[in-house]
Write a protein that binds this DNA or RNA. Structure first.
Lengths: 217, 217
DNA sequence: GTCTATAGCCCGATAGAC
DNA sequence: GTCTATCGGGCTATAGAC
């Protein structure tokens, strides 16, 4: 009984540490955060924190691992509707924008690591993210081959989808200034979604022509 | 004569320090870089560096100031062709992509500062960037009013233009992984430009109809 | 598991010789 | 202008009492 109770308390503190570390890493980057900052944010001592995590870098890796889990969980939307490009892209964009809205710190930690050249996580990105992206690109190319959508470079399209959705998390401070408000609200995200969906569908979908099947030589 | 010679040498070292600091701040963020790192990168001592700049934060501000100059110098393309939306947008996108290709570290320093919530540069961004953006948005709205382009939210369009172009500097490490090469080359930037221009023009330009003036009720 | 104590190093910044 | 020397403090991490 006691071990269970202890274990629960232990896991709660461990999770609190990971959450606080994520928030601080997102804001100031790896080098801008000390173990003392994180410890104080959860009301513990730095030494206690080092009891749960063997080193600062190990803690950072755990944070990044969790961030990658969340990032990838919003990325499988394309494969959900393998025969309907329009609906698949609508859901993909909506999902990635929901990620930016619901998990801005995850987005920022990931962005910080990528901007730095992914010094610590290049291997994990190559193993987990790239295959996921390539799967999406493959789905895209199949649509184009089947005549379900226009021929566009799926790899650059994926880049554009990340960029246009994650910017609403990573750049929210500057976007708020542009929009003249303290922070982004639901209406702003709805406006963003509307524009991005409009752009992507105009680019990717074939011009509707239910009568004829071929236009270019 | 001597004062001039000294002055020249002084300005050269000062510029070397700023360049090295920019590169390191881009890679590791403000907190991840020490004065010693920067000093060693230019072959000087940390004390000597503090002779040229009164403090680390003052040096960072000088770097950010220069970054903002470059960033803004690529942003006035819209006003150059106030009567030709298509050409103006083509040049704006090409210019911002050239910025990402020619000044990736400037882009990353700026991105790092914005992701952190612009703790140091919020005031300067509000004073210099926001008016520039609002000028672009105003040009855009005028085009829409004059019937030169479709009615889209100029503010979100500007966000999308930054995001889709800067991502090729800030996220180059991950994009390289996706494209399966060591670093991005001219052809990759050309492909990006082609896709972004295509998307934006499809979204913004009116459907060509030289015969009639109204389609929607 | 959490505490105090501390090792050993790196940090930004200053003082003063030359 | 550049140097050596150094201050005072923060840093990661470890040791050991309880």
């Amino acid at each position: 009984m006691k071990p269970i109770k202890f274990s629960v308390a232990r896991e709660k503190l461990e999770q609190d540490i990971l959450d606080a570390a994520k928030r601080l890493f997102a804001q100031r980057g790896y080098g801008g955060v000390s173990l003392d900052h994180i410890a104080k944010a959860v009301g513990a001592s730095k030494q206690n924190l080092l009891y749960y995590f063997p080193s600062k870098e190990a803690l950072y890796r755990r944070v990044l691992h969790g961030v990658l889990d969340v990032w990838l969980s919003y990325m499988d939307a394309l494969s959900q509707r393998p025969d309907d490009p329009e609906q698949a892209l609508r859901e993909y964009i909506a999902g990635k924008l929901r990620f930016s809205r619901e998990h801005p710190d995850d987005s920022r930690v990931y962005a910080n690591e990528v901007i730095s050249g992914a010094p610590i996580f290049a291997a994990e990105i190559a193993e987990r993210v790239i295959p996921s992206v390539q799967a999406d690109v493959a789905i895209f190319n199949r649509w184009a081959e089947c005549g379900l959508c226009r021929q566009v470079d799926g790899r650059h399209l994926m880049v554009l989808l990340w960029a246009s959705t994650q910017v609403y998390a990573d750049w929210s401070s500057q976007i708020s200034l542009v929009l003249g408000k303290q922070e982004l609200d639901e209406a702003d995200f709805a406006a963003a979604e509307s524009l991005i969906v409009d752009m992507v569908l105009r680019t990717v979908l074939l011009p509707s022509r239910p009568d004829h099947g071929d236009a270019t030589p």
